[in-house]
Computed example of a mutant assay.
Amino acid sequence: MVRYRRNHVAGATYFFTVTLRNRRGDALVRNIDLLRESWRCAMKRVPHEVIAAVVLPDHLHAVLTMQDNRDDYSRLWQEIKKGFTRRLGAPSPWQSRFWEHTIRSESDLSAHVDYVHFNPVKHGLVASVSAWPQSTFHRYVRSGQLPADWAGSREFPQGFGER
């Protein structure tokens, strides 16, 4: 068995990609309420702050700051996946692993938050970021951090990754 070396830095911020086995499925958006409920329960067990997140049909991206003093993000994803699978009442749809990147600077954080928000456009699911409902982009708009028409086309916006 391959042992992955994961970076753990107390209180750090990380970018994650978590995918379903069936990369052509839509279980995540079709069952978004189950995923949200699972994530809320997992947050109680493994405290973290959601900086940015987007849920697509077959995968999700998230930028999270861990708040458990151990940065036990592996346990967090285990809790989310387990809770979703149990609520779904079916065999686990998840790939067993996830991808993680430690955020190292403000520009790295900005680039990853932009990547998360632009992802539905990148995958051709919508023509504008604001058209995808399962994204923290809408929270950024409500707080005045981004305009509602940010990245309105299929091309990366000018200044992508900069704020």
Rank of each mutant, 00 (worst) to 15 (best):
D72K: 08
R30K: 13
L76W: 10
A42R: 03
A90N: 09
R97V: 10
Y14L: 05
V55I: 14
A148D: 10
P133C: 00
T102Q: 15
T102H: 15
D26Y: 05
W150P: 03
C41S: 14
H59P: 08
R163L: 12
F98A: 08
N22Q: 09
G144H: 01
S92I: 00
T17L: 02
Q95R: 15
F15A: 09
L34Y: 02
D114W: 05
R97A: 09
L125A: 02
R139L: 12
T136W: 11
F118D: 01
R24S: 08
H138R: 01
S135H: 00
I80V: 14
E106M: 12
S130W: 07
A42S: 08
R23E: 07
R87K: 14
W94E: 02
M66S: 02
Q158R: 13
N31L: 06
V129F: 02
W150Q: 03
H59K: 11
V141R: 04
M1L: 10
D108V: 08
R139T: 13
S110W: 12
S110C: 13
Y4H: 15
W77A: 07
W132N: 08
A53V: 13
H8Y: 14
R5T: 15
D108E: 06
Y14T: 03
L146M: 09
L35V: 07
V63C: 06
V9W: 05
L56F: 06
S96F: 15
A90H: 12
Y115E: 01
N22K: 07
D72T: 06
H112K: 15
R70D: 15
Y4Q: 15
L56P: 04
L28K: 06
F160V: 03
L64P: 09
W94L: 02
M66P: 04
L146A: 03
D33N: 05
R36M: 11
Q145P: 00
A111G: 06
V46A: 13
G152F: 12
R30E: 14
R163V: 11
D72C: 12
P91Y: 11
R154I: 05
G152W: 12
W77H: 10
D149Q: 03
L76E: 06
R139V: 13
F16M: 01
A12I: 04
T85Y: 04
P133V: 00
R86C: 11
V50E: 09
F118E: 01
E79N: 13
W94P: 00
E155C: 08
A148T: 09
R87D: 12
G11H: 06
V141Q: 04
S92M: 03
P91I: 11
I32E: 06
A52H: 02
W132P: 07
A151P: 04
P93R: 09
P120H: 01
R21Y: 03
E106N: 11
H59C: 08
V9F: 04
T85I: 01
F156R: 15
F16N: 00
S110N: 12
I32D: 02
H59F: 11
G152S: 14
P133I: 00
S135R: 00
